[in-house]
Amino acid sequence: MADILEISRLTKRFGGLAAVNDVSFSVPEGGIFGLIGPNGAGKTTIFNLITGVYSLTEGDVRFRGKSISGLPPFKIADMGITRTFQNIRLFKNLTVFENVLTACHLGASYSIIDSVLRLPRFRKEEKALFKKAENLLSIMGLTERRDLVANNLPYGMQRRLEIVRALALDPTLLLLDEPAAGMNPDETEQLMRLIVRIRDEFKLSVLVIEHHMDLIMGICEQIVVLNFGIKLAEGCAADISKDPKVIEAYLGATEEV
């Protein structure tokens, strides 16, 4: 299996603070890869670096063998990397359907003139976009909430909608930032199954940040542990949970619920 994402010697400094310091790892194609570490370890910062939200200080990010560092976020998204956010960022005042439809735009190519004059190309492509959005909603079990304004969705569904919105871009790499935050064990369990299902159905690779150890240990084939911006350990779930350095880093650092 080839690596879809290679991160090499990645460093990000904010002023004097090295939020990410010389971190390297690779995500294999089709895998579910875990990224863990105590609060402030630099996990979200790594996501921001991969997706181009922050510019990196040193190092390189390669996607399918091509360097993507320095590209603007929307180009990186076009190439097939999408993500969810730790603090949910939906289009709050739009309905569930509109949230997904908006993200479905990549398949369309009609111009502003096409839309203003409502030319055939507009009609045809727009129809396809609507169909795709409806389809995604039904696969993900959100059809019933189609017309609900995102802000009024229950919290767990908001997280799910964010994942659907990401899938609307036909990504090949999906980054999930604490998708189970605020969920109870039942819902976490559901979410785990969902992540595995998405990976299989949409044929993607997943990189997931989580504090819920059950989730990470349950679904991740490979895990990287960060602390203070430095890579502490890498390996499969069993190795990680036995690693003395990891245990030490987590001792005292309370596990978030």
Binding site: T51, V53, P72, P73, F74, A77, D78, T82, R83, F85, R89, L90, F91, K92, N93, L94, T102, A103, H105, L106, R165, A166, A168, L169
Partner: peptide, 10 residues
């Protein structure tokens, strides 16, 4: 609605 999310949505 959400500039950052818009960017991430391509």
């Amino acid at each position: 609605e959400e500039e950052l999310a818009a960017q991430i949505a391509g």
